[in-house]
Protein backbone atom coordinates (compact mmCIF):
# COMPACT_ATOMS: atom_id res chain seq x y z
CA UNK A 1 0.00 0.00 0.00
CA UNK A 2 2.75 2.45 0.89
CA UNK A 3 4.01 2.59 -2.68
CA UNK A 4 0.79 4.33 -3.71
CA UNK A 5 1.39 7.20 -1.35
CA UNK A 6 2.80 10.50 -2.42
CA UNK A 7 6.23 11.24 -0.95
CA UNK A 8 4.84 13.83 1.40
CA UNK A 9 2.39 11.42 2.95
CA UNK A 10 3.86 9.96 6.07
CA UNK A 11 3.10 6.64 7.61
CA UNK A 12 0.02 6.24 9.71
CA UNK A 13 -3.26 7.78 8.80
CA UNK A 14 -2.40 9.33 5.43
CA UNK A 15 -4.49 7.03 3.26
CA UNK A 16 -7.31 7.02 5.77
CA UNK A 17 -7.35 10.78 5.70
CA UNK A 18 -7.49 10.69 1.94
CA UNK A 19 -10.42 8.34 2.05
CA UNK A 20 -12.28 10.60 4.39
CA UNK A 21 -11.53 13.54 2.14
CA UNK A 22 -12.71 11.60 -0.88
CA UNK A 23 -15.98 10.86 0.82
CA UNK A 24 -16.39 14.44 1.96
CA UNK A 25 -15.65 15.74 -1.48
CA UNK A 26 -18.00 13.21 -3.04
CA UNK A 27 -20.85 14.33 -0.85
CA UNK A 28 -20.11 17.94 -1.62
CA UNK A 29 -20.02 17.20 -5.32
CA UNK A 30 -23.32 15.35 -5.21
CA UNK A 31 -24.89 18.24 -3.35
CA UNK A 32 -23.52 20.73 -5.81
CA UNK A 33 -24.86 18.72 -8.69
CA UNK A 34 -28.31 18.60 -7.20
CA UNK A 35 -28.44 22.26 -6.41
CA UNK A 36 -27.12 23.30 -9.77
CA UNK A 37 -30.23 22.04 -11.47
CA UNK A 38 -28.15 20.09 -13.94
CA UNK A 39 -28.96 16.70 -12.51
CA UNK A 40 -31.29 15.14 -15.05
CA UNK A 41 -32.26 12.18 -12.95
CA UNK A 42 -31.33 12.62 -9.39
CA UNK A 43 -31.65 9.05 -8.18
CA UNK A 44 -29.21 7.85 -10.81
CA UNK A 45 -26.88 10.73 -10.14
CA UNK A 46 -26.65 9.73 -6.53
CA UNK A 47 -25.07 6.44 -7.62
CA UNK A 48 -22.78 8.00 -10.13
CA UNK A 49 -21.55 10.52 -7.60
CA UNK A 50 -21.13 8.13 -4.72
CA UNK A 51 -19.16 5.79 -6.96
CA UNK A 52 -16.30 6.75 -9.19
CA UNK A 53 -17.82 5.54 -12.46
CA UNK A 54 -15.15 5.36 -15.14
CA UNK A 55 -16.84 5.48 -18.52
CA UNK A 56 -15.57 3.35 -21.36
CA UNK A 57 -17.17 2.14 -24.58
CA UNK A 58 -17.83 -1.19 -26.18
CA UNK A 59 -16.44 0.05 -29.49
CA UNK A 60 -13.00 0.53 -27.92
CA UNK A 61 -11.99 -2.66 -26.09
CA UNK A 62 -8.60 -1.21 -25.23
CA UNK A 63 -10.20 1.67 -23.34
CA UNK A 64 -12.53 -0.73 -21.59
CA UNK A 65 -9.63 -2.94 -20.54
CA UNK A 66 -7.72 0.05 -19.24
CA UNK A 67 -10.81 1.26 -17.41
CA UNK A 68 -11.16 -2.06 -15.62
CA UNK A 69 -7.52 -1.95 -14.56
CA UNK A 70 -7.86 1.63 -13.32
CA UNK A 71 -11.01 0.77 -11.39
CA UNK A 72 -9.25 -2.16 -9.76
CA UNK A 73 -6.36 0.06 -8.68
CA UNK A 74 -8.74 2.68 -7.35
CA UNK A 75 -10.71 0.12 -5.38
CA UNK A 76 -7.47 -1.05 -3.79
CA UNK A 77 -5.96 2.32 -3.04
CA UNK A 78 -9.16 4.20 -2.25
CA UNK A 79 -11.91 1.68 -1.48
CA UNK A 80 -14.30 4.48 -0.61
CA UNK A 81 -14.19 5.60 -4.22
CA UNK A 82 -16.23 2.45 -5.03
CA UNK A 83 -14.71 2.67 -8.48
CA UNK A 84 -16.56 0.84 -11.24
CA UNK A 85 -16.62 0.85 -15.01
CA UNK A 86 -19.67 2.04 -16.90
CA UNK A 87 -19.48 0.80 -20.48
CA UNK A 88 -21.44 2.61 -23.15
CA UNK A 89 -22.14 1.22 -26.59
CA UNK A 90 -20.11 3.87 -28.42
CA UNK A 91 -17.65 6.60 -27.54
CA UNK A 92 -20.31 9.23 -28.23
CA UNK A 93 -22.11 8.02 -25.11
CA UNK A 94 -19.13 9.02 -22.98
CA UNK A 95 -19.28 12.52 -24.41
CA UNK A 96 -23.03 12.77 -23.92
CA UNK A 97 -22.90 11.67 -20.30
CA UNK A 98 -20.05 13.96 -19.36
CA UNK A 99 -21.49 16.89 -21.30
CA UNK A 100 -24.86 16.56 -19.54
CA UNK A 101 -23.22 16.02 -16.13
CA UNK A 102 -24.58 12.55 -15.71
CA UNK A 103 -21.05 11.25 -15.24
CA UNK A 104 -17.65 12.65 -14.39
CA UNK A 105 -14.78 10.58 -15.75
CA UNK A 106 -14.09 8.65 -18.94
CA UNK A 107 -11.30 6.96 -20.83
CA UNK A 108 -11.04 7.73 -24.52
CA UNK A 109 -8.36 7.66 -27.18
CA UNK A 110 -6.18 10.74 -27.47
CA UNK A 111 -7.81 11.60 -30.79
CA UNK A 112 -11.32 11.29 -29.40
CA UNK A 113 -10.40 13.35 -26.35
CA UNK A 114 -9.27 16.15 -28.62
CA UNK A 115 -12.43 15.90 -30.72
CA UNK A 116 -14.63 16.00 -27.60
CA UNK A 117 -12.76 19.03 -26.31
CA UNK A 118 -13.23 20.92 -29.56
CA UNK A 119 -16.73 19.64 -30.32
CA UNK A 120 -15.61 18.06 -33.56
CA UNK A 121 -16.82 14.92 -35.33
CA UNK A 122 -17.97 12.46 -34.16
CA UNK A 123 -19.11 14.69 -31.29
CA UNK A 124 -20.38 17.61 -33.31
CA UNK A 125 -23.98 17.17 -32.10
CA UNK A 126 -22.86 17.42 -28.48
CA UNK A 127 -20.65 20.46 -28.83
CA UNK A 128 -17.37 21.35 -27.18
CA UNK A 129 -16.95 19.88 -23.71
CA UNK A 130 -14.74 21.67 -21.16
CA UNK A 131 -12.52 18.66 -20.55
CA UNK A 132 -9.45 18.30 -18.44
CA UNK A 133 -6.89 15.50 -18.53
CA UNK A 134 -6.22 13.52 -15.38
CA UNK A 135 -3.72 10.94 -16.59
CA UNK A 136 -2.75 9.44 -19.92
CA UNK A 137 -0.60 6.85 -21.64
CA UNK A 138 0.56 6.62 -25.23
CA UNK A 139 -2.91 5.78 -26.53
CA UNK A 140 -5.55 6.84 -24.03
CA UNK A 141 -6.51 9.72 -21.82
CA UNK A 142 -8.58 9.69 -18.68
CA UNK A 143 -10.61 12.89 -18.86
CA UNK A 144 -13.08 14.75 -16.69
CA UNK A 145 -14.91 18.08 -16.71
CA UNK A 146 -13.13 21.28 -15.76
CA UNK A 147 -15.14 21.55 -12.55
CA UNK A 148 -14.23 18.08 -11.33
CA UNK A 149 -13.07 18.53 -7.73
CA UNK A 150 -9.39 19.31 -7.36
CA UNK A 151 -9.06 16.84 -4.52
CA UNK A 152 -10.57 14.02 -6.58
CA UNK A 153 -8.27 14.78 -9.46
CA UNK A 154 -5.30 14.80 -7.13
CA UNK A 155 -6.18 11.47 -5.54
CA UNK A 156 -6.93 9.78 -8.86
CA UNK A 157 -3.65 10.97 -10.33
CA UNK A 158 -1.87 9.85 -7.20
CA UNK A 159 -3.45 6.41 -7.32
CA UNK A 160 -3.04 5.77 -11.04
CA UNK A 161 0.15 7.58 -12.01
CA UNK A 162 1.79 6.48 -8.80
CA UNK A 163 0.85 2.83 -9.13
CA UNK A 164 3.09 0.07 -10.40
CA UNK A 165 0.21 -1.79 -12.02
CA UNK A 166 1.88 -1.45 -15.41
CA UNK A 167 -0.79 0.93 -16.57
CA UNK A 168 1.79 3.27 -18.04
CA UNK A 169 -0.25 6.25 -16.93
CA UNK A 170 1.32 9.60 -16.22
CA UNK A 171 0.16 13.11 -15.58
CA UNK A 172 1.15 14.85 -18.83
CA UNK A 173 2.96 18.12 -19.08
CA UNK A 174 0.82 21.02 -20.10
CA UNK A 175 1.36 21.74 -23.78
CA UNK A 176 0.05 24.87 -25.39
CA UNK A 177 -3.03 24.27 -27.47
CA UNK A 178 -3.67 20.85 -26.01
CA UNK A 179 -6.45 19.88 -23.60
CA UNK A 180 -5.57 21.44 -20.24
CA UNK A 181 -4.41 19.14 -17.50
CA UNK A 182 -6.60 19.25 -14.41
CA UNK A 183 -5.14 21.47 -11.70
CA UNK A 184 -5.46 18.71 -9.12
CA UNK A 185 -3.49 16.26 -11.26
CA UNK A 186 -0.88 18.92 -11.93
CA UNK A 187 -0.60 19.58 -8.22
CA UNK A 188 0.14 15.92 -7.58
CA UNK A 189 2.68 15.78 -10.41
CA UNK A 190 4.40 18.87 -9.03
CA UNK A 191 4.69 17.37 -5.56
CA UNK A 192 2.41 19.99 -4.08
CA UNK A 193 0.81 18.55 -0.97
CA UNK A 194 -2.92 18.29 -0.70
CA UNK A 195 -3.89 20.47 2.18
CA UNK A 196 -6.03 19.15 4.97
CA UNK A 197 -9.67 20.03 4.38
CA UNK A 198 -9.08 20.99 0.79
CA UNK A 199 -12.06 20.11 -1.32
CA UNK A 200 -11.23 21.69 -4.66
Amino acid sequence: MSRFRAPWVGTGCGIAMHRRRFLTATAALAGAGLLSGHAPYRQWVVYRQTHLVILTSRDDPGADDLGEKCAAVMRTVLPESKAAVGRGPRVQRIASLIASRQAEVGIVSQANAAAMFHGEAPFGDIGAIPLRVLVQNDVYRMVCRDDFPRQHAYLIAEALAGSDAELGLVVPKQNEGDIPVHAGALAFASGVPLETGESR
Binding site: R48, V53, L55, V85, R87, G88, P89, I94, S96, Q102
Partner: peptide, 19 residues
Protein backbone atom coordinates in the same frame (compact mmCIF):
# COMPACT_ATOMS: atom_id res chain seq x y z
CA UNK B 1 -33.38 3.24 -26.40
CA UNK B 2 -30.58 0.92 -25.47
CA UNK B 3 -27.92 -1.20 -27.10
CA UNK B 4 -28.38 -3.86 -24.46
CA UNK B 5 -28.43 -7.44 -25.70
CA UNK B 6 -28.45 -10.97 -24.40
CA UNK B 7 -24.76 -10.67 -23.50
CA UNK B 8 -25.08 -7.42 -21.56
CA UNK B 9 -23.54 -7.26 -18.10
CA UNK B 10 -24.05 -4.91 -15.15
CA UNK B 11 -21.29 -2.53 -16.17
CA UNK B 12 -23.25 -1.75 -19.32
CA UNK B 13 -25.83 -0.06 -17.09
CA UNK B 14 -23.34 2.42 -15.71
CA UNK B 15 -23.31 4.25 -19.03
CA UNK B 16 -27.02 4.30 -19.79
CA UNK B 17 -28.02 7.81 -20.84
CA UNK B 18 -31.28 8.84 -19.24
CA UNK B 19 -31.62 11.79 -21.57
Amino acid sequence: DSDLNVNSVPKDLGAVDLN
